[in-house]
Simulated assay, not measured.
Amino acid sequence: MDRLNNINPFAKRDSHSAGAVVTYKVLTVVTWLLSLITSVYFTFPKGDWNHRYHPHTVWDADYYNPSGFTQHYLITSLFWLALFILQLGYIVHLFSSSVETVNAACAVGSHFIVNNLLHFVWVLLFVYGHTVWSEIVLILNFVNLTSLYFRHNSYPRFIHLPAVSGPLAWTFVAIYSNGAIMVPHHTSLVARIFANIAIWSILGYGMFFVLLYKDYTMGFALSVLSASLGVAQFERQVIAFQWIFAFTIMAVLFVFSVLVAIPAWTGKDVPIGRRATTNDTERAPLLADP
């Protein structure tokens, strides 16, 4: 078993060898750049773009396949811009002079590398219209990031938000938006009713982390994505329930996230949710580092 843990890149470790640290640095930078460049390239339209000879951008794919989970291109693009910037900050910590900081950053490195690779694959599959395969990739990444979350949810914000909760929040919502496009007749009344019901899972999912883990980063991330969904649905169809539900979910998640965040930022106990069980307050879920 010890030998298996030594060769398993996803095994939980408190320390890493010099060789492993170098490997994490190289693979993290390379896969992050791959994910970033691909995302940027397929976000902006090309001058010679046309439907027949060139792939869609991510937002063209959404525009020509509207559904009950279509998101607003600008809000979600800004979400990803902020996430990539925060991920750059996470990468910088891999090069820190503090051994403890480097080990903490390396601890989530394998899952983060897989996330970057799967996001790269998802973008290519999605823009070329392979929605079934892109949905499978999202589900695989959801499993990867969920495993990461529950095995490594006690690291500081500079690791948790860009490498764990941010990508997980996006992947959860993207499963719905990608899946809605994948389903035939996704603009039908039945599909709209299903979307009206399914959207509430975003609230349940977010509140699970906010209340149980006091994870306001997940709450804020999902509230932004809910706002994106709400704006897009409002622009698409003013007389509809979906945008009302989306903004309601956004407001509830935002309020509860603030209720958790303010005591955490001020060093006071959070009045809702469970108490952290770890004795190391600096590694309590998210939120002990300044």
Rank of each mutant, 00 (worst) to 15 (best):
D2S: 15
L4F: 13
K12I: 12
S15Y: 02
H16Y: 07
S17I: 03
S17L: 01
S17E: 09
V21L: 06
V22M: 00
Y24C: 06
K25M: 03
L27F: 11
T28F: 02
V29A: 06
V29W: 03
T31Y: 03
S35E: 00
I37Q: 14
T38Q: 01
S39T: 01
F42T: 00
T43L: 07
G47A: 07
G47D: 13
P55Q: 04
P55C: 11
Y64D: 06
S67Q: 09
L74N: 13
I75N: 04
L81P: 01
L83Q: 12
F84R: 02
F84I: 01
F84L: 01
L86S: 07
G89F: 10
Y90L: 07
V92R: 13
F95V: 05
V102D: 15
N103W: 05
S110Q: 06
I113L: 08
F120A: 10
H130Q: 11
S134D: 08
L140S: 15
T146L: 12
T146H: 10
F150E: 05
V173C: 09
I175P: 14
I181P: 12
L189V: 11
F194S: 09
F208L: 14
F208H: 12
F209T: 05
L211T: 08
L212Y: 08
T217N: 08
F220C: 05
S228A: 12
G230C: 07
V231P: 07
Q233D: 02
F245A: 07
V252F: 15
S257M: 11
L259C: 11
L259N: 09
T266K: 13
I272C: 10
T278P: 09
T281L: 13
P290H: 14
